[in-house]
Simulated scan of single mutants.
Amino acid sequence: MSRPQCSRCLRPLTHCLCPLIPSLDSRTRVLLLQHPSEVNHALNTARLAALGLMNAHLVVGEVFEDLPALLNVPGYRARLLFPAEDAQPLQAYTPSDEPLLLVVPDGTWRKARKLLHLNPLLAALPRVTLAEGAVSRYRLRKAPGPGALSTVEAIVQALQALETPTSFEPLLRPFEALIEGQIAAMGDEVFQKNHGPG
């Protein structure tokens, strides 16, 4: 028998994160393209980001038939947040800059690359990247490499780079509560054994 679930954050009602989810405005529009395997993931950080940003849109799928329409948002320049040798580091807007439509694939690195492979229009977008050296707060899994962040962390870092001095840190509150809840559920001993410094 499944536990009653919050229809907004999709967490069990006893662990609803909605009171922690902010409602932040941003000059940047964020388009999250989520691989279907992430939808029921316990730490669905793309959903948290979409709920906490007024100018964000979450679409779930593998092949996005309506991608041309999703990318053609008047007044925005579409950029893919994904590493590449020619990716441009994100920099703060100048007053005259047209804001970005920041396209963020959500999934494991393998699944995110698959989304690009299945959607050539997505793969063809100019790419942007985050500053090097970011450290994830996601203490429940080993990062695949330096600078590997969860989706919500990457979005926060991107928006802070683009829209400084505005702070998007409140977006991380439900994410951190989620992690604390997972650690509490597994118990400190299990957490230290599996995820502690080692």
Rank of each mutant, 00 (worst) to 15 (best):
P36R: 08
L101T: 02
D66T: 15
G52S: 09
E169N: 01
R127I: 06
L67I: 01
P174Y: 07
G181P: 06
Q182Y: 00
L71F: 11
V30M: 05
V156S: 05
R27A: 03
R137I: 00
A42F: 14
V59N: 00
E169P: 03
Q88E: 15
D106T: 08
K193I: 06
L81A: 05
T164M: 02
L31Q: 05
N194I: 06
E38M: 00
A154Q: 12
P89C: 00
P89A: 15
R27C: 00
P68R: 09
C18Y: 11
P68H: 09
A184M: 06
E98G: 10
C18A: 12
K111F: 01
L159P: 14
A46G: 14
V128M: 04
F82H: 14
T166Q: 15
V190Q: 02
L17R: 08
G198V: 12
C18N: 07
T28C: 13
N119L: 04
L70E: 04
T166I: 08
N40G: 08
M1H: 15
R110Q: 11
L178F: 03
A50N: 14
D188E: 15
V73P: 05
I21E: 10
H117C: 09
V190R: 09
L90G: 12
V39E: 06
I155W: 13
A49S: 04
G196H: 01
L162F: 07
Q157V: 07
F191A: 02
G187I: 07
R11P: 04
A123C: 12
P120K: 09
P146I: 01
K111R: 10
L118M: 00
E38P: 02
V103N: 13
Y76D: 00
D97P: 02
N194K: 12
I155M: 13
L140G: 06
W109T: 13
L80R: 05
D106L: 10
A87E: 06
S26Q: 15
M54Q: 07
H117V: 03
E98W: 05
L115A: 04
E65W: 03
Q34N: 02
L58P: 01
L172F: 13
A158S: 13
T14E: 15
L101A: 11
L115I: 04
Q88V: 15
P146N: 06
L101N: 14
I179L: 15
P68M: 08
R139T: 09
L70R: 08
V60D: 03
A46T: 07
T14A: 15
V104E: 10
E98Q: 14
L118I: 08
H117Q: 14
A50F: 05
P120W: 12
R127C: 14
F191H: 12
V128P: 06
R27M: 00
R137T: 07
L159W: 12
L10M: 06
L48G: 07
L130C: 03
M186L: 14
A49G: 14
A112Y: 13
G61C: 09
Y76N: 03
